[in-house]
Design a protein around this nucleic acid. Structure first.
Lengths: 154, 154
DNA sequence: CTATATTTGCTAGGTGGCTAACGAACAGGT
DNA sequence: ACCTGTTCGTTAGCCACCTAGCAAATATAG
């Protein structure tokens, strides 16, 4: 075999930026796989269970994803019988999503991957350091998204 | 119009996790768009210009992307005449990538989006806080990727 | 009331990453 | 010299997200 390992010194900065984000996705997928629920689907269920029935419009805004994307995610949840789509009483355009009894039942069994991620990731780290990290990241992304709009604001 | 704004209190945690990662992608795309170079293409060029000719195998490891993904990226660069693919002298399986004169010339004009991101994102932030943030994130992702393997290690 | 503009959810199509599976080239043991 | 196993780059196909454009429903100006 040739040189098995690559000099870490030459690892791209991009690899790190990627890891910071994908770590949470990978963990969520791993944790939720047994329940056949994807990360985005989990977020939708989370909003429905904590806020009650919600229109797709509001969900898309809260989750910061496109309505078109949400259409597909919701279709999957409806197909599995976890969520119901009903037309809004006062606005015929809107469809209000509600968790079905089956959806609510499944939700009780689901672990909370976000809580799990926070626990394991920041276990043993001083609270002051966590606060600093959160502040620095919030400021950094704030500056970047305001100077380079496109993520259509916070 | 209905309620235009959504209560930020109810914004999903997922929205934040997403922003932290995508901020850099969005900025890179914005900065590089005039040159018709994507983020991943930029990373490839960066490696080629700083390390010299490199095999696709090594590039994939350094950029932490799959060889299959790299195939497509390289094809785009070759199509634009920025990069050359030559068989390795001692191992006929490997293809060594080299920046063409045109590629090297273009590279001179390209801004460094990573440097730009770091400057604008952390401008005015105390170095100690930056160090803390870097350390906390490194530790967190280290724990997560070791406890939930799948990203096939660092 | 009517005409115009906006909003909602949908469909269609594109992008960038992934996994799976393949032939060709190499490495090692017998 | 052969068989076996590994590695390289490629292809094919999947997934999650995106943008563009649509019809229907609603809001607003005159």
């Amino acid at each position: 075999m040739a040189n098995e390992q690559v000099d870490p010194e030459h690892q791209s900065a991009g690899a790190w930026a990627k890891k910071y984000y994908f770590a949470t996705r990978v963990v969520m997928e791993a944790v939720l796989r047994p329940y056949d629920i994807g990360p985005t689907q989990w977020y939708v269920m989370h909003q429905l269970m904590t806020l009650g029935p919600t229109s797709q419009r509001d969900l898309a805004r809260m989750l910061q994803i496109e309505r078109a994307t949400l259409t597909g995610v919701v279709a999957a949840l409806v197909r599995k019988g976890l969520v119901e789509q009903n037309p809004d009483a006062t606005d015929q355009r809107q469809k209000v999503l509600t968790a079905t009894p089956a959806g609510a039942a499944l939700w009780q069994e689901l672990p909370d991957p976000i809580a799990l991620i926070l626990e394991t990731a920041f276990d043993g780290v001083a609270q002051a350091d966590i606060d600093t990290t959160a502040r620095v990241l919030r400021e950094a992304t704030g500056k970047l998204t305001s100077l380079f709009p496109k993520g259509k604001e916070s």
